[in-house]
Design a protein around this nucleic acid. Structure first.
Lengths: 150, 150
DNA sequence: ATCTAAATGATAGTGATTATCAATATCAAA
DNA sequence: TTTGATATTGATAATCACTATCATTTAGAT
């Protein structure tokens, strides 16, 4: 795991300590498919370290976010969902309002547009959250095309 | 206020009742600058109707969202921010991580790209939330250009 | 004016996240 | 390698944003 290295150095750079728990939580996140929430990460971490605490999970997820190793997404449920960052594959999310399915997709064009917008406005962008919601192919009413809100 | 009309008809269409409180909350939202949260809407509504309740504010904001008359944005604080919808001006938000300022901007190009993505994937998109965060012109470190997360 | 269902407001409850703090573990230095 | 300073942990209490409940009130049809 290459990010273990960068994690260790980022941690030490800031005078923080590389703990068993922090490494475990990063590993859990990296080996997760989809977008686990804090509770899910806690459950998975607990399988490998039954003594791990809930607060540590939250603290570590916040730390990983700060270090740019994790992202938190708001998928329309009342709580956060987390994902290990793979810088080579920035992507966006669509949530189906009916079946709840989350679709990931990429758009180099949106990234480019964002890039140029950011330059024009003098904004230093560190995070882009693009989240669509609506109805997936399966749940959309028959015959409906892309449209504005009803 | 043209949206009062559409509000009244949308409400009645669904067999709901057009109450003093609902009208007041819509008016508060429409006359607000920026992106008030539920508490702010409650405070402003209370100025005009001291008997109004907290739950009513939440219920009505949810209703306005359903009717497409309001949007809820996640600006990185732990709670929602609301905004009356003006369909002629879809826009996005940038939050400065240092000073907290929220910048609004438009991008017809991103809307177009979204439109065509949605068509390709067969997704019926009803809502687009694009939220950037980073550092504004004033807070960004001197000499820094647009860049990835540190 | 009357009636009925919808809506309100007060408040209790819930779920997610954060703060507190004594106990523990990391890691630099002796 | 032990020691010591202090960052971190884990248990739990607290907080925060929001939602459910329910008796009372009100909108709007008759």
């Amino acid at each position: 795991m290459r990010s273990n290295e960068s994690f260790a150095s980022a941690i030490r750079l800031r005078g923080m300590k590389l703990t068993r728990q922090r490494q475990l939580i990063l590993e859990v996140l990296e080996s997760s498919r989809g977008h686990p929430d804090a509770e899910m990460v806690y459950a998975k971490a607990k399988e490998r370290d039954p003594r791990i605490g809930f607060a540590t999970v939250y603290r570590t997820l916040a730390l990983l976010k700060q270090l740019g190793l994790a992202e938190e997404h708001n998928l329309g449920e009342g709580h956060g969902h987390f994902e290990a960052v793979d810088k080579t594959k920035p992507h966006f999310h669509f949530t189906c309002l009916k079946c709840g399915k989350v679709v990931e997709f990429v758009s180099p064009q949106i990234l480019r547009t964002t890039q140029s917008l950011c330059e024009k406005k003098g904004l230093l962008v560190t995070d882009i959250h693009l989240h669509f919601s609506g109805y997936c192919r399966h749940c959309r009413p028959a015959g409906s095309e892309c449209a504005e809100k009803p």
